[in-house]
């Protein structure tokens, strides 16, 4: 039996029972029934991290609740800075230095408030109660119970913008990690995708604001950015896998690494870039997802 025939037979087995969407584990056990001799070879053909190891399984409600938590966090973060809710700068009017900075944050905050309203409605319309809204502490000290990571978040605009970048980049990555769990629900999927790209525009602008203030940062996540997190800390998980230069595609039914580092004609400018520089462009060209657990850990840092 050749490889493709095996796959075709397995696919047939799966489609005979469409009611039970077979997860990978079930597929593997089914594979065992077909012929264990091929198992090692098949597993060896699955090097993609996305297809290896334990994956999250999440309901549509899980996805909506995570979205609402992220939007509540962002909305409160900006609302405090603008003086709309207590806990922000002593003089919110002066905090942003320029009217352009303040106007941009007002625009972003208004979007986050709309996202909060949207996801609140989607959850309640579905008949689910809402989770209690936590208390927020954007210094990262959890109300003084641990050392603050960002003690000057509302007294230093540059720190505020760093945290803003962290939250926006994290939001983009978190939505991206959730879309596969709402794939069969076109309505929720499209709402999530359309929120996702709005957040990406916010992230880009926050980065542009930081660059205008002298920070070494691009509008997209780049290995060339000056790091804003420290290895080993919770916030660092937002960036620790963003420098990935490896992407996988399925070709002739085999998971294949895209040969950005060898044969693909991507280094086509004049003069050509160094090998490291072209791979940095590859890293920039793809925003990576994070699993819900990573997003939850970041939420935990700023709530109590």
């Amino acid at each position: 039996m050749d490889f493709l025939n095996l796959l075709a037979r397995l696919a047939t087995l799966d489609t005979e029972a469409p009611a039970t969407a077979a997860p990978r584990r079930a597929a593997l056990s089914r594979l065992g029934q077909v012929g264990t001799a091929l198992l090692p070879a098949l597993l060896a053909a699955l090097p993609a991290p996305a297809l290896a190891g334990t994956k999250e399984t999440r309901t549509r409600l899980d996805v909506l609740k995570l979205a609402l938590k992220l939007e509540l966090l962002e909305n409160e973060f900006y609302s405090r800075a603008l003086g709309l809710t207590p806990g922000g700068p002593t003089n919110p009017a002066a905090f942003f230095v320029t009217t352009a900075n303040r106007a941009a944050i007002q625009t972003i905050q208004s979007h986050e408030a709309q996202h909060v309203a949207l996801f609140t409605r989607l959850i309640t319309d579905a008949g689910s109660p809402l989770d209690a809204v936590p208390n927020f502490d954007f210094t990262g000290s959890k109300n003084g119970t641990q050392p603050a990571l960002y003690p000057d978040v509302y007294t230093n605009l540059d720190t505020f913008l760093k945290v803003a970048q962290l939250l926006e980049d994290a939001g983009v990555r978190a939505y991206k990690g959730q879309v596969e769990f709402i794939q069969t629900d076109n309505y929720t999927l499209e709402a999530a995708l359309r929120t996702h790209s709005t957040e990406a525009r916010h992230a880009a602008h926050i980065r542009t604001m930081r660059r205008q203030r002298g920070a070494n940062v691009k509008s997209w996540v780049s290995p060339a950015d000056a790091p804003i997190t420290t290895a080993g800390t919770v916030p660092d998980a937002v960036y620790s896998t963003e420098s990935n230069t490896t992407q996988y595609i399925v070709r002739n039914s085999v998971i294949t690494k895209v040969p950005f580092d060898s044969s693909l004609p991507i280094n086509v400018g004049t003069p050509p870039l160094s090998a490291a520089a072209i791979l940095a462009k590859v890293a920039e060209a793809f925003d990576e997802p994070v699993e819900a657990a990573t997003a939850e850990a970041l939420l935990q840092l700023f709530t109590y």
């Binding site: 397995l10 799966d14 077979a22 399984t57 549509r60 409600l61 629900d185």
Partner: peptide
């Protein structure tokens, strides 16, 4: 949105996927 929210949507089987791709 009246559809059940609690139904887990699991990752598609690789084999279903690979077969479909073929």
């Amino acid at each position: 949105f009246a559809k059940p929210l609690y139904t887990p949507i699991k990752r598609r089987s690789f084999f279903m996927y690979a077969g479909a791709t073929a």
